[in-house]
């Protein structure tokens, strides 16, 4: 007989956050604690439906007694811990990480990154015009997805969403090593020949716009994508009886994109190809 764990009741843990005493449930991360007290920490590779990848290092904070800074998205609060989110070391790290990212990748469609950069005075051009970059042509090999890896920051979220954390299709993986590391199918085979099932769950979690739906990409290209004119309405998918929640992004009475609420106990932000793309029929009019 196999027994599957379902967790134990939680205690409270007390620690010091930027000089203030804070109590959080056992198992909470530093980031959870910051969010709870209204402190904003920038994150890129963190995903509310995913295990921490610890890759981007934007959310690093200082923990007294630790030789290095620690990732707030994954480090769990310990009793008596003394954490600083705004120390000089933290600021320096955040600034440099943003500069390094900005010097190698196109962050033009990454939400909030401009605010963060100006807040810490980051200037990615400091590394000079000859700094090696990841810029490359956009990949369009199917009618539903666009992959613009010049915008990829290697946050691992698409790989994790496609892999054993949600979709279990394993169509993509990180390949290569170091600066050459990149997201790829086996032998960079086009998506239609890969294990991809077009659930769009990778796009759902992509923090930079490196992955996008074809419709959104095309509208951005022809200048008709306008988020200020869009409404977002959450409803329920009609393609089977599971009851997946869909958030319809509507512009000019047209569905232009479908996402899924991450806090739904049914979907946790995930959908299948039908839920993600099967809306065109209502607007064949």
């Amino acid at each position: 007989m196999t027994i599957v764990e379902i967790g134990l009741p939680k205690r409270l843990v007390e620690f010091t956050l930027d000089g203030e005493s804070v109590r959080v449930p056992e198992g909470a991360t530093i980031l959870d604690a910051c969010t709870a007290v209204g402190k904003s920490i920038p994150t890129l590779c963190y995903g509310d439906t995913l295990k921490p990848a610890n890759a981007c290092r934007v959310c690093m904070v200082e923990v007294e007694g630790s030789r290095t800074l620690v990732p707030s998205c994954s480090r769990k609060v310990e009793p008596g811990m003394v954490v600083r989110t705004d120390s000089e070391r933290t600021q320096h790290s955040r600034k440099l990480v943003l500069e390094l990212l900005g010097s190698a990748t196109d962050l033009s469609t990454t939400p909030h990154v401009d605010e963060w950069m100006s807040a810490c005075g980051a200037d990615p051009s400091r590394f000079g015009p000859d700094a090696e970059t990841k810029l490359q042509p956009t990949t369009v090999d199917n009618p539903l997805y666009v992959r613009d890896y010049g915008k990829c920051i290697m946050c691992y979220k698409c790989v994790d969403a496609c892999g054993d954390q949600w979709q279990n299709s394993f169509a993509i993986s990180v390949a290569g090593r170091g600066f050459d590391a990149h997201i790829s199918t086996e032998f960079a085979t086009p998506l239609p020949d890969s294990a991809c099932v077009y659930c769009g769950n990778c796009i759902e979690v992509c923090p930079t716009g490196a992955l996008s739906f074809k419709r959104e990409h095309d509208k951005r290209e022809d200048g008709t994508w306008d988020e200020s004119k869009q409404t977002r309405t959450t409803t329920v998918c009609t393609f089977c009886g599971v009851g997946c929640n869909l958030t319809l992004h509507v512009q000019d009475n047209e569905i232009v994109k479908v996402t899924s609420p991450h806090d739904s106990t049914v979907t946790h932000g995930n959908l299948c190809i039908k839920g993600r793309f099967g809306w065109q029929h209502v607007q064949n009019r």
């Binding site: 309405t233 009609t238 009851g243 319809l248 569905i255 049914v266 209502v282």
Partner: peptide, 28 residues
């Protein structure tokens, strides 16, 4: 009108969960 995106109401799924259906679009 298409029920799932052009009307307000509820659906009930396989785990007996009643969930809100919301109007996101005007019907043609």
């Amino acid at each position: 009108a298409a029920a799932w995106c052009e009307t307000d109401g509820t659906f009930t799924n396989s785990e007996r969960r009643v969930q809100r259906v919301r109007k996101a679009l005007d019907p043609p």
